[in-house]
């Protein structure tokens, strides 16, 4: 990942069985999925990064048959959340505020502390469903 490029030389020098720098999270996930599809028991998955990143990697791991209980994770960096809109099912990345706007359907969402591993996202529920427009002040909640 770009932010870590200054560590690249040091990491490469460790001579891992497979070392790969991905330009984006989606390309990394695709590559990881391919590597896991031919992997054997004994391979263990360790993930460090933001919450949204950890969630997406865990999903690739569990889709490959790894029990999430056996995946070791370490949170580093921003607390920004991936949020799944319960209404339109769209995922909004890098949500730092509560409430937040769904990037797909435009509803104002209350971001709940309710997390789905399968979707790798927190749940967002329309905050002004009862009285449209009655929205509390936006707070920087997840930095």
């Amino acid at each position: 990942m770009k932010g870590g490029s200054n560590h690249a030389a040091a990491l490469r020098a460790l001579n891992a069985a497979d070392y790969w720098e991905a330009p984006t999270i989606p390309t990394l996930l695709t590559r990881l999925g391919a590597a896991l599809s031919t992997a054997h028991m004994g391979l263990r998955l360790y993930v460090a990064g933001t919450e949204g990143f950890i969630g997406q990697v865990m999903k690739v791991g569990t889709d490959a048959g790894i029990s999430f209980l056996s995946i070791r994770t370490e949170h580093r960096g921003s607390l920004a959340r991936r949020v799944s809109c319960v209404h339109c099912k769209g995922i909004t990345e890098n949500v730092t505020t509560n409430p937040a706007t769904c990037s797909h359907c435009g509803l104002t969402l209350l971001v709940r502390d309710h997390y789905s591993r399968r979707i790798a996202a927190f749940q967002g529920v329309c905050i002004d469903a009862e009285v449209p427009g009655d929205v509390p002040p936006v707070e920087e909640a997840f930095r």
């Binding site: 992997a39 054997h40 004994g42 490959a64 048959g65 790894i66």
Partner: peptide, 9 residues
């Protein structure tokens, strides 16, 4: 026996 078993075994 435990070698070369696919993930998810």
């Amino acid at each position: 026996l435990l070698e070369h078993q696919p993930l998810g075994t």
